[in-house]
Amino acid sequence: MKYWIVFALLFHWSVSEAAGTEMQIRFAFHRIASENDLNVFISNCESSDWNKADLYKSVATMRKAEYVLSPLKKFEYFKLGKEAIEAFLKANPEDVEVRYLRLMVQNNLPKFLGYSSQMEEDRLFVTRNLESSNLPLDFQSLIRQNMKTIKA
């Protein structure tokens, strides 16, 4: 009987940990404050089996441009991230989280890169669909807070 209790507790812990991985990635992304944070975050995304970890890794890859001097390297990171985000969005056009992340990227990029034409569309989509999404309420709250910073 004791073994079943231990097994049940371990199973519950592993399921909770898997669910926590999603939230850990979601919230850790918003706490990246240094190049080291960024590298650790990307490593965590690479070791995650969550289906959106690659999306977050792509957005984080774009942020690597903040820490390099070469304009060519900056553009390379931008291009890699943009292509991955757009591919993920093409496969998931109604996903609020994907639209939110693209909006955050567009909001923080220089306009001369030409990656800002969907800002208003994404802002409206996220605003209209956030409440009915299946995103956890605490993450929805973070999204609402960040939406207030949009320059569009």
Rank of each mutant, 00 (worst) to 15 (best):
K2D: 12
Y3G: 04
W4I: 15
F7L: 14
A8K: 12
H12S: 10
V15A: 07
V15M: 06
S16G: 12
S16V: 10
S16W: 12
E17N: 09
A18K: 13
A18T: 08
A18Y: 13
T21L: 09
E22T: 11
E22F: 05
Q24I: 05
R26L: 09
F29N: 02
F29K: 02
H30R: 14
I32P: 04
A33R: 11
S34R: 04
S34N: 02
E35Y: 03
E35D: 11
D37P: 05
L38K: 00
L38P: 01
N39S: 07
V40Y: 06
F41K: 00
I42P: 00
S43H: 14
S43I: 08
C45G: 03
C45E: 06
E46N: 13
S47V: 07
D49P: 09
W50E: 14
N51V: 12
D54Y: 05
L55D: 02
Y56F: 15
K57S: 14
S58A: 15
S58W: 02
S58V: 05
T61S: 07
M62T: 03
R63S: 08
K64H: 08
A65R: 03
A65H: 00
E66K: 12
V68W: 02
L69P: 04
L69A: 10
S70C: 06
S70M: 02
P71V: 04
K74G: 06
F75Q: 09
E76N: 12
L80D: 07
G81K: 00
K82R: 15
K82S: 12
A84G: 10
E86P: 01
A87G: 10
F88Y: 15
L89Q: 14
L89E: 13
K90H: 09
N92F: 07
P93L: 09
D95K: 00
V98G: 01
Y100H: 07
L101D: 01
L101G: 01
R102N: 13
L103V: 00
L103K: 02
V105K: 01
Q106Y: 02
Q106D: 04
N108S: 11
N108D: 13
L109A: 06
K111T: 14
F112K: 10
Y115F: 15
S116T: 15
S117C: 08
E120K: 12
E120H: 10
R123D: 05
R123G: 00
R123C: 09
V126D: 03
R128Y: 11
N129S: 00
L130S: 07
L135D: 04
Q140V: 02
S141I: 04
S141T: 11
R144F: 03
K148H: 05
T149C: 08
T149P: 06
I150P: 03
A152E: 12
